[in-house]
């Protein structure tokens, strides 16, 4: 069975996974459930219709930022529990 340390690490990891996938779900699915209605909103400054903008640029950019953020958070979790391998480069 997993040690208590491993359990704690995995619980934090699961929590981060849920938050990350919730944000992912919002940008990939929730917005486009209302694609028709949201399209009447204009994006400030840029002037694109909102849903058009999200599918052409907005959600894509959100994913990029989300994965970098996720990687940073997960590295912090790994370090907190002493399971980081960032320094290890065996070959």
């Amino acid at each position: 069975m997993a040690s208590a340390k491993q359990e704690a690490h995995w619980n934090d990891t699961k929590g981060l996974m849920r938050i990350t996938l919730a944000i992912w779900f919002f940008f990939s699915i929730v917005i486009f459930m209302f694609g028709h209605d949201l399209n009447s909103v204009k994006v400030p400054l840029l002037g694109y219709p909102l849903s058009y903008y999200m599918t052409a640029q907005g959600s894509l950019a959100a994913f990029v930022i989300l994965i970098f953020w996720f990687a940073g958070k997960q590295e912090a979790i790994d370090r907190k529990h002493g399971f980081s391998d960032a320094e290890r480069t065996e070959d």
């Binding site: 981060l16 996974m17 990350t20 996938l21 992912w24 940008f27 990939s28 486009f32 599918t55 052409a56 959600s59 894509l60 994913f63 990029v64 989300l66 994965i67 996720f70 990687a71």
Partner: peptide
Amino acid sequence: LVGWTGGYVLVST
């Protein structure tokens, strides 16, 4: 576009 980028969130998590 959304599908071919959003999938990477699943890959990384």
